[in-house]
Design a protein around this nucleic acid. Structure first.
Lengths: 309, 309
DNA sequence: TGGCGTATTTGTCTAGGACAAAAATGGGAT
DNA sequence: ATCCCATTTTTGTCCTAGACAAATACGCCA
């Protein structure tokens, strides 16, 4: 029930569509060539003009592709079929997640900024930062992500969630840093590869390391691999912690880790973690399964290196 | 004085250079055709491979063009001439910037995480959040950006600065939100267009609005235009605040703002600001020159709409 | 069921050409 | 000399259609 009266929206240029749908110009053109969709009008200079409804369909398609569908099978299908497919995505295994996430999804649906912030803060206060960053947080992120993929949430609601979540987590990390002993080691450098724009996983890891008394330094997301290596050397890091969400292709993660391993001295450990399914241990790279395993891993590092605070 | 030993950095693909320099692929190709620069190597499949030094030059060129030079006059010139031109550009008004930024650049060069954080926090405490977000902050960001463009800082140092700056600013905003009267109006929604990944400008604006007692809601960066519009309606925003850094082409900013203006009801005001030089006022869109003008603008809004706390 | 080699799919790159919007330039008229 | 308008140059973005490697699916065998 978005609009009762159809608004006359001007058709968009290919550059606008690229921005709004997230599909590169080259892809838009090659889909048109291969699958016959999109099927834009042309202006006087023979440039593509995309009607608004086709752009909407393109957004639907992008969601389905992110969810694992293949372009060849779905590009060109009528809208109602696409919507049916979208409903199936994320289906049955949603049940366990739903329990904790339901209030959050409700707050997102009602656009309640203050309520959401309070709710997240309450979770941190009630169960502690550790449980939030390693258990509840990942579940909420997962639930919101799949609700978005399913079409239950708009993009802007997902952005909004990310912002609120970030704010709560950041302030908790700051608070945790202030408390406790002066931090010295291990010095941990955080980052993600260039193809990984997802910051929440990295931040939850940062929270866990901070709780263990590490000195954390973050580069944020999407740092080129040679730059990560240079930073690790410059900051004299003990551990390089990399986060991989499920959007990173396994092969690229592996290649990148090997490249990185080559660029930093062996005295610096590389720890990789995240939801990326293809992450596998390799020589000189530790793979952490789940954020809860960070604590024990730090303990092990400390006894391994004979470092005591 | 970055590196004594030249490191062998792998040449970049055209897509990487587009991300890195902010110049679209088409422009890179057409410059090569017209001016003979850049002059990339080719890999086995005849695809362009840009050496690192050419990418540095491209960044220099982009800065000069943003500053008003014409491509035809400067593309192809040797680096030392470009640097001379660049010095003239920011010439006299570079002095005051250098004064405040020098300690920060020093801390970045020595990779002093704790020192940088303390230094930024000290500025906030000494001069206040308002002065930090509207005066010192922008100057620091500018100084770091141009040091990076000049090649005086590595990418990872710029990432590192961004993270520390973000942390300090966020916690200050949180503190400011907690203080003062309960926040009701204006309700301000923050965001950037999809081609704008720069979050610092947006956050500094958020700080200024928060200090004025507004209720701020952020979508973070890179939200598609129709989604921004949908969020504005859903959150019943009074003001939509958009941030534009200098990497956004003026034409795209204008087009996008017009599109956005069409999509949201006239009762919601659109305020645009940022370092983007081509930002011009247009019907239904206010352009704020400088973060310091946010305060008076809010006052004006309050008296215009007869809203009193 | 799990691993491995082959076939298909898919995104991104290539080359030049074209053209409109933006900017610079020239030439009166005030 | 200054202002304004028309003409020329510059510049970015779009076009077509082909190519190819990386990613993925498929078929086969153990």
């Amino acid at each position: 029930m978005t609009n009762v009266v159809a608004e006359p929206v001007a058709p968009m240029s290919i550059a606008s569509v690229e921005r709004d749908s997230g599909l590169p110009k080259d892809t838009l053109r090659v889909w048109e060539r291969r699958y016959g969709f999109p099927n834009p009008l042309r202006d006087k200079q023979d440039e593509r003009l995309y009607p608004a409804d086709q752009v909407t369909t393109l957004r639907l398609l992008r969601r389905l592709i992110v969810a694992g569908h293949r372009p060849g099978k779905i590009v060109g299908l009528p809208d109602d079929q696409l919507k049916k497919l979208l409903e199936k995505v994320g289906g049955p295994d949603d049940q366990p997640t739903a329990y904790e996430a339901e209030p959050v999804l409700g707050l997102l649906r009602s656009h309640d900024a203050v309520g959401l912030r309070n709710h997240l803060n309450a979770i941190v206060l009630r169960s502690g930062l550790g449980a939030f960053a390693s258990v509840t947080g990942p579940r909420l992120v997962e639930a919101v992500g799949s609700a978005w993929a399913r079409g239950d949430l708009e993009i802007h609601q997902e952005h909004f969630f990310t912002e609120q979540f970030t704010t709560v987590l950041r302030s908790s990390i700051s608070a945790a840093e202030g408390a406790g002993l002066p931090r010295v080691r291990p010095r941990v450098l955080f980052g993600t590869f260039p193809q990984e724009p997802h910051a929440l996983g990295l931040m939850m890891a940062e929270a866990m390391f901070t709780l263990e008394g590490c000195l954390g330094i973050s580069l944020g997301v999407q740092t080129p691999i040679p730059e990560i290596a240079a930073a690790a050397r410059a900051h004299k890091a003990d551990i390089l912690a990399l986060s991989f969400s499920s959007i990173v292709p396994a092969a690229q993660a592996t290649t990148g880790l090997a490249e990185l391993r080559n660029l930093v001295p062996g005295t610096i450990e590389i720890w990789a973690g995240g939801a990326c399914p293809g992450l596998r241990p390799m020589p000189g790279v530790y793979v952490l399964r789940g954020l809860a395993s960070i604590g024990p891993a730090i303990e092990a590092w400390r006894s391994r290196t004979n470092f005591t605070e």
